[in-house]
Amino acid sequence: MKTRLKRKKIKHLKDNLQLLSLAMPAVILLALFSYLPMFGIVLAFKNYKVPKGIWGSPWAGLENFRFFLESQDAWRVTRNTLGLNFMFIIAGTVGAVIFALIMYEVKKARHVKLYQTVSILPHFISWVAVSYIVYALLDPTKGIINRVIEIFGGEGVSWYSEPKYWPVILLIVSLWHSVGYGSIIYYASLMGMDSGLMEAAEIDGATKLQRVWHVAIPHLVPIVIIKVILGIGGIFNADFGMFYNVTRDVGALYPTTDVIDTYVYRALMQQGNIGMSSAVGLIQSIVCTITLVLTNAVVKKISPENTLF
């Protein structure tokens, strides 16, 4: 009896060691590429000197933070990041829900598949490729948009030097890129809805719009809330690929398109200002953590099964 217990214990230990070894590659990769850089945040408090490395460089106190916070850039990049992301979250969600509701009206599976394939096509190309497409539309002399404007007798706009249009341009590009893909989750939820509800409403004489408003939309509300809250949780992280490529990193557009991520990138790679870029990055990381934890707490209140952690 005793030996059997012992054998069981050994087996348990052996199993655990094997499971640990299965986990090791992922553990090591995360240690190198996620956890090691977390210690690199001390850079924000250092005056980094290349030959001395991270630890050997002298301390700079809060100098790096002061430099950023006292510049005019701080307000600009924060406003752009929050404002544009907020706009993308709201418009993206509304667009995806409407798209899914219309998709729900398509009755033949074959048609659904065709429309879905075409509408998620833009999601499958990189932001670099998107920047080519936007360029083909907006180039001041050759772009299609200006040519259409000229055909109707208007005057072409030099899009790449007019920052005021870019919040709208970026919104349209963002919707083009994500609405079809984003609608899948809502469409799937509608398909899972008890179709008897819609039929009952129809028998009771509800018009199509009434049915959508009183049956379909309430059905989607829980997912919408979760999606929006999670979006808000990530509101301080901008999609670098979009902001960097689609604007072609044109300086004239910075007033409305420069976000924290592009700012940090330029401070690091173009100005070589390692201290400041890591200080800004650290502020961003901390604020992100706080928003994520807060939004998660909110979700926990509203619908515990949808929390992130």
């Binding site: 995360l30 940090v264 990138y265 390692i274 890591s278 650290l282 990381s285 901390i286 953590t289």
Partner: peptide, 18 residues
């Protein structure tokens, strides 16, 4: 251990230097 990096990251600059 797997989830924590979603919550907090060292950021671009320290990743780049590391």
């Amino acid at each position: 251990y797997l989830f924590f990096p979603t919550l907090f990251s060292g950021g671009l600059t320290s990743s780049y230097i590391v």
